[in-house]
C-alpha cells in the first residue's frame, strides 16, 4: 500500500466549500437546520464538530499593490500526522494508522473520554453528542481502500485538492511554491516535517498562520507532562512501598507495653511486685 496524502493548494482554492459539502454527503454527516447567525464572514460553521469534519476557513489578509486584500483560505481538517498525538493518548486504542497513510478512528472502540481532542495540536477530534463518541476525518478510508479518492478531493472544481502518494504531493507542492514565490513571498509548503510529517500537504501562499495553521505544531504540553507522570507514579508507589518494607523490618519486636512504661512511668513503669504490694496496702486501708 502507498503512503498517500491529500494535497491542498490554498492559492487555487476559491472557498466554494464543495469539499465541505461532499465530505458531509459521503460520510452522512447531518447539518443543523437552524439558520446560523451572520458573523460578517463567509466561514460557516465557525467551528468543526462531531458532524463537521472538514471546514474551509476564511481569512482576509493584506495583499500587494495590485490586489489590495487577499483571501487566505484554510482547510481545517485532520492532518493525519505521522506522530499522531490523538493515537498516543487514546486509552481505548481507537485511533490507528492505516497502510494508506491516514489516521483513522474506530468509533466502536471510542469511549468518549475526549483526551484526543485536547492532545491534538490542530484541535480536530470533536465529541459527537448523538453517540457520545469522538469523530474526525478519516481520509475516506472506505474509498481509498477501494482505489477511489477521498470525497472532498473529487469535488474540487479548481484542482486545489488532489490525492496521491505523499512523495508526489510533496513534489507538486514544492513546485507550486516555487512558481508563486515571486508574487507571494511568504508562500510555503506545510506538512513536510510538522509532527514528523503530515498526510495533508498544503501550499499556503500567505504563510502558515494566515491560513489558520500553527507554525510549529506540538502536542499539548500538559499531555507530554502526563506521559512523564505515568512512570513517576509507578516509581513513587514502588519507592514509598520500599520505605514501608524497611519500616516494617525496623518495627519487628516492638512492644507497646515497653513504650507505655516510658510514656506513663507512674502507671506502667513499675515492676509488678511493687504494684501488687501497693494494692495490698490500699486494700488494708480500705478494710
Amino acid at each position: 500500500m502507498a503512503d498517500n496524502a491529500i494535497y491542498y493548494d490554498a492559492s487555487k482554492c476559491t472557498g466554494c466549500k464543495g469539499c465541505q459539502i461532499n465530505c458531509k454527503q459521503w460520510n452522512r454527516l447531518p447539518s443543523p437546520l437552524e439558520q446560523p447567525e451572520w458573523t460578517g464572514s463567509y466561514e460557516s460553521p465557525k467551528e468543526n464538530s462531531g458532524n463537521t469534519w472538514l471546514r474551509i476557513t476564511f481569512n482576509e489578509v493584506a495583499g500587494n499593490d495590485d490586489d489590495g486584500i487577499g483571501w487566505a483560505f484554510g482547510r481545517n481538517a485532520c492532518q493525519h500526522c505521522t506522530d499522531a498525538a490523538c493515537a498516543k493518548v487514546c486509552p481505548a486504542g481507537a485511533y490507528y494508522h492505516t497502510a494508506e497513510g491516514s489516521v483513522a478512528l474506530d468509533t466502536s472502540k471510542c469511549v468518549g473520554c475526549q483526551f484526543c481532542a485536547t492532545a491534538c495540536p490542530y484541535h480536530i477530534p470533536h465529541f459527537n453528542d448523538n453517540d457520545g463518541r469522538s469523530r474526525k476525518c478519516w481520509m475516506c478510508q472506505d474509498r481509498i481502500a477501494n482505489g477511489l479518492k477521498p470525497a472532498c478531493v473529487t469535488t474540487c472544481p479548481t484542482l486545489a485538492l488532489q490525492f496521491g502518494t505523499r512523495e508526489e504531493m510533496l513534489e507538486k507542492a514544492k513546485a507550486r511554491v516555487a512558481e508563486i514565490k515571486p508574487i507571494r513571498p511568504d508562500a510555503m509548503v506545510y506538512g513536510e516535517n510538522e509532527m514528523d510529517g503530515l498526510h495533508v500537504i498544503q501550499v499556503l501562499p500567505y504563510g502558515a498562520e494566515a491560513h489558520g495553521m500553527p507554525l510549529n505544531p506540538k502536542e499539548n504540553i500538559l499531555e507530554q507532562a502526563e506521559r512523564w507522570l505515568q512512570p513517576l507514579t509507578v516509581l513513587g508507589v514502588l519507592g514509598i512501598s520500599a520505605v514501608a518494607v524497611a519500616s516494617f523490618i525496623g518495627g519487628r519486636h516492638f512492644s507497646q507495653a515497653e513504650a507505655l512504661k516510658h510514656a506513663y512511668p507512674e502507671d506502667y513503669g513499675r515492676p509488678d511486685e511493687v504494684v501488687v504490694e501497693e494494692m495490698v496496702i490500699e486494700d488494708g486501708r480500705d478494710a
Binding site: 467551528e47 481532542a117 502526563e226
Partner: peptide
C-alpha cells in the same frame, strides 16, 4: 466535557486530575 467547557479548561482539569 467539551464543548460545554473550553478546551483549555478540559485539558487543565485532566492534568489536575492525574
Amino acid at each position: 466535557g467539551m464543548p460545554n467547557i473550553p478546551e483549555w479548561l478540559f485539558s487543565l482539569s485532566k492534568f489536575g486530575h492525574v
